[in-house]
Design a protein around this nucleic acid. Structure first.
Length: 482
RNA sequence: GCUCCCAUCGUCCAGCGGUCUAGGAUCCCACCCUUUCAAGGUGGUGACACGGGUUCGAAUCCCGUUGGGAGCACCA
């Protein structure tokens, strides 16, 4: 009934340098979704070939954030797998052997140019208006010259010999892409210190790990022909398919960078965004749900609907207001106890039971988890900070009568619940003929310290009779002496 | 400079030759609801970059222009 096709195997292969960029996170998400959609394998491979950049701590942070996003992997440095190890720094022997093979078959050669020389020549070429790429001079070195350079003790790198012709491939999101090989200079595959470069290591591992689809950012589109040449030179006839995702840019259309102050997933995590909202929003950056209308969907729905053909070609601007709005929707959709649980890291040490009672009061008022604590602070402290502007406006001589009225009415209340409180306070409002809009403001300010607060009657009920009356009384005192 | 990629409301997407006086979301504005703030409801402003083709017919196909982005590293 179903046609037999090789099992889908995709990989997310980040360099563990610093935090997880949202662009990379989205690549991870799309790879994950693709793998899950086809019931394939999602591989996490750490590209730490550049020893100067990688640290173990960075790798752990990376995995931590991926887990937080809910992107679980089937093979990786921590869980192992059929093609272990999954850290490239532990696979150097494999790359060395592959490189030696390429030298033997004449597809790679020793290059004795130093980085300084190359840099110098590049600058000259640019200044003269010539292409800045490597000119291939070491490719044609005579044996005598080579022996001489060797004799000088010059270290050498290994360079891949780019053949004439053109390299073409079908990009799964962009369609046919073609590069003339003469536009591609010979490139380094092994550094003079013996370490492999990205092209060699990634190309080698994609073959070795039987990766079927390479899903990555558009910034790597022009690296693809080099990768393809490498596969061909290594004798591989069935290379992975490629799919390039549009880049994510900042609000100013410039590449999302530190200047925008918010490039890392960790940043959004600590800002109080929910992982499910983050995943949902990232999916919207360059992709849309099958019906073209649905914007809010679960990971499961994403997996079910995900298709590379539906990926957009345009760079997408990361729009924090939209992310925030979506996050608010997710927050409102959470069960109260779940929201309380998620709020815990942001509230500090507070009474769990009280928190649970108070959360419904702010659930539809916050768009980020970080916004709850300031709104709820007056519940958790006997002396909430007072907004002095609010105090000046409502705890003054003009409102002495009102405060006095509320205090009397509430003091003699039988049941201390929000319905009774409301009835009592509305009675005072009517009797004194107070304007509806501002009638309860003096009490709000006295009790919460702010012009803006959760619903007053419910707040008073939860705060409790004595604390509430005490705060109103204190407010009245201030009003009298103002 | 060269190569490649891209081009629909401010932003993210829908649209894959006629159903488009271009749809949804976000943002912004107004109104309703309302004890503040939100949430919710209703309505509104707002886009096919430009020029040529192809076609009975083009946002949709082709070419060019312009504009943006990426790459051209002993980074990945």
């Amino acid at each position: 009934m179903t046609e037999v096709h090789p099992k889908v195997r995709v990989r997310f292969a980040p360099a563990p340098s610093g935090s997880l960029h949202v662009g990379n996170a989205r690549s991870a998400l799309f790879n994950w979704a693709y793998a899950r959609h086809f019931d394939g394998a999602f591989v996490l491979r750490i590209e730490d070939t550049d020893a100067s950049r990688a640290t173990g701590a960075a790798m752990h942070d990376l995995m931590d954030v991926l887990r937080w996003l809910g992107l679980n992997w089937d093979e990786g440095p921590d869980v192992g797998g059929r093609f272990a190890p999954y850290r490239q720094s532990e696979r150097f022997d494999l790359y060395r052997r592959a490189a030696e093979g390429l030298v033997r078959s004449g597809r790679a050669y020793h290059c004795y140019c130093t980085p300084e020389e190359l840099d110098q020549r590049r600058k000259e070429a640019m200044a003269a208006g010539r292409p800045p790429g490597y000119d291939g001079r070491c490719r044609t070195l005579s044996d005598v010259d080579r022996a001489k350079l060797e004799g000088e003790g010059r270290p050498h790198a290994l360079r891949f010999w780019v053949q004439e012709g053109a390299t073409e491939f079908q990009d799964l999101v962009r369609g046919a892409v073609r590069f003339e090989n003469n536009q591609i200079p010979d490139f380094v595959i092994v550094r003079s210190d013996g370490s492999p470069t990205y092209l060699l290591a990634a190309g080698h591992d994609d073959l070795a790990m039987e990766i079927t689809h390479v899903i990555r950012g558009e910034d790597l589109l022009s690296a693809t022909p080099r990768q393809l040449m490498l596969y061909e030179a290594m004798g591989f006839r069935n290379p992975p398919k490629f799919a390039h995702m549009p880049l994510i840019v900042g609000a100013d259309r410039q590449p999302l960078s530190k200047r925008h102050g918010q490039t890392s997933v960790e940043h959004y995590r600590s800002e109080g965004f929910l992982p499910e909202a983050m995943v949902n929003y990232m999916a919207l950056l360059g992709w849309s749900f099958g019906d073209g209308t649905t914007e809010r969907f679960t990971r499961e729905q994403l997996v079910e609907q995900f298709a590379l053909e539906a990926v957009s070609h345009n760079p997408a601007a990361f729009d924090v207001p939209k992310l925030t709005a979506l996050n608010g929707e997710y927050i409102r959709g959470l069960p109260v106890d779940e929201l309380a649980r998620r709020l815990t890291p942001f509230t500090g040490e507070v009474d769990d039971v009280l928190l649970l009672r108070v959360v419904p009061l702010v659930q539809e008022r916050i768009a980020k988890l970080t916004e709850a604590a300031p709104m709820l602070r007056f519940f958790f402290t006997d002396e909430p900070p007072m907004d002095e502007a609010a105090v000046a406006k409502f705890l003054n001589a003009d409102f002495v009568e009102a405060l006095d009225g509320y205090l009397n009415a509430l003091s003699s209340l039988g049941e201390w619940d929000h319905a009774s409180i409301e009835t009592a306070m509305r009675g005072v409002q009517e009797k004194l003929g107070l304007k509806k809009k501002t009638a309860f403001m003096p009490v709000r300010v006295a009790v919460t310290g702010s012009l803006i607060s959760p619903p007053l009657f419910e707040s008073l009920e939860i705060l409790g009779r004595e604390p509430s009356l005490a705060r109103i009384r204190a407010g009245l005192d201030r009003a009298k002496t103002a």
